[in-house]
């Protein structure tokens, strides 16, 4: 039996760099993060590069990081979820109302919150797989629906911090701080880091994780290869909803109270983190760790510009420019496959 041979083509310098970025989706965001840290250490002076300030940045990105983790699963599957923040706030309202206002045991409050988040994600999944709605439209609708449900269930009332401390202090658990060498980290920050580690494992080392990529890469091909894509999508949106509920618990600790009006644009911040982190909006490409890096990049820019005394509007300007640069980069990197 003689071997069948196919030709290889030689590869040039820029193309090799493009391929490197293509095969290592976290390389580009990681470089941006390191460069921006170095740059702000010079621009913003020594107040920026202290353990305290760095830990503050991590605290500030905790909630958006968790939402970004949920959003990453969905964007990897070639979808988008505009309702993540609404699911999160609804879940936190369910936890707060049941645990504090209705005074039920905390376990029931938390379970109800997680159930609410998962149910919202499941509903998104149903709309997308059964009614065949585009994810953008389905979740644009549910964003408003969940926000309205949240106002209805909360009666547009904030659950106050003092009441939580008195009746259900566990709800604020993830806001508690631990000091290490001048750094101030919350349990929520550790939870976020642990969540990213867990999702990294799931996406890279389990069949479910590989199928998330497969469905996002080419749904028809995945079906022909024997994956039940619709079932996969349903599970992805449900898991994302569950992660949003977890974010809701962390958000209570971060804010100190349960406010139905909080994080109204959290979905956009989460998408920003995912995109700057190098995930392709076309699905199937990217890394969960990129989202963590993307969230940190946004945090570093905001903090650095603030300490350097730059007006808030230029912070927004910079984040916008970062998004555009990241998507342009993705377009270029994806040309490798052409």
């Amino acid at each position: 039996m003689h071997p069948v041979r196919f030709d290889h083509h030689p590869v040039g310098g820029i193309l090799r760099f493009q391929r490197f970025l293509h095969s290592k989706p976290t390389a580009a965001p990681l470089m941006v993060l390191l460069l921006s840290l170095i740059a702000f250490a010079f621009i913003a002076g020594e107040r920026f590069f202290t353990p305290f300030n760095i830990s503050l940045i991590i605290q500030q990105v905790t909630v958006i990081g968790i939402l970004g983790a949920a959003q990453t699963l969905i964007i990897l599957s070639a979808g988008i979820d505009l309702s993540v923040a609404a699911i999160m706030v609804l879940s936190s309202v369910v936890m707060g109302r049941i645990g504090v206002v209705y005074g039920l045991p905390i376990e029931i409050a938390l379970l109800a919150g997680f159930a609410a988040g998962s149910a919202c994600g499941f509903l998104n999944g149903l709309l997308i797989t059964r009614l065949r709605l585009p994810p953008f439209i389905a979740t644009l609708g549910t964003w408003s629906v969940f926000f309205a449900l949240n106002l209805w269930f909360s009666e547009a009332q904030t659950v106050r911090s003092a009441d939580i401390d008195r009746l259900a202090p566990v709800l604020k658990f993830f806001g508690e701080r631990v000091g290490i060498f001048g750094a101030q980290l919350t349990y929520g920050s550790f939870l976020m880091l642990g969540l990213f580690a867990l999702l990294w494992y799931v996406l890279n080392w389990t069949a479910w994780g590989r199928r998330v990529y497969a469905v996002g890469d080419d749904k028809e091909a995945a079906d022909l290869a024997g994956i039940r894509s619709d079932r996969m999508l349903l599970s992805i949106y449900t898991v994302a909803g569950l992660i949003c509920a977890l974010g809701g618990w962390v958000a209570i600790g971060r804010l100190g109270s349960v406010s139905p009006q909080s994080f109204y644009e959290g979905n956009l911040d989460a998408i920003t983190a995912v995109v700057i982190g190098g995930c392709s909006l076309f699905g199937g490409r990217g890394s969960i760790l990129g989202t963590l890096i993307g969230a940190l990049i946004v945090g570093v820019f905001r903090s650095g510009l603030k300490i350097a005394g730059v007006d808030v509007l230029w912070q927004e300007f910079t984040v916008g420019a970062l998004i555009i640069a990241a998507v342009a980069m993705d377009q270029w990197i994806r040309k490798v496959s052409a």
């Binding site: 199928r211 497969a214 995945a222 022909l224 496959s337």
Partner: peptide, 30 residues
Amino acid sequence: ALLPALSIVDNMFLGREIRSPGFIGKWLRR
């Protein structure tokens, strides 16, 4: 019916992945 972004190995075993033996395969689904 190949997935372009996935590796050759991932493509070959898509839908019929092999899990590690013992605890890590059964419980950690590795």
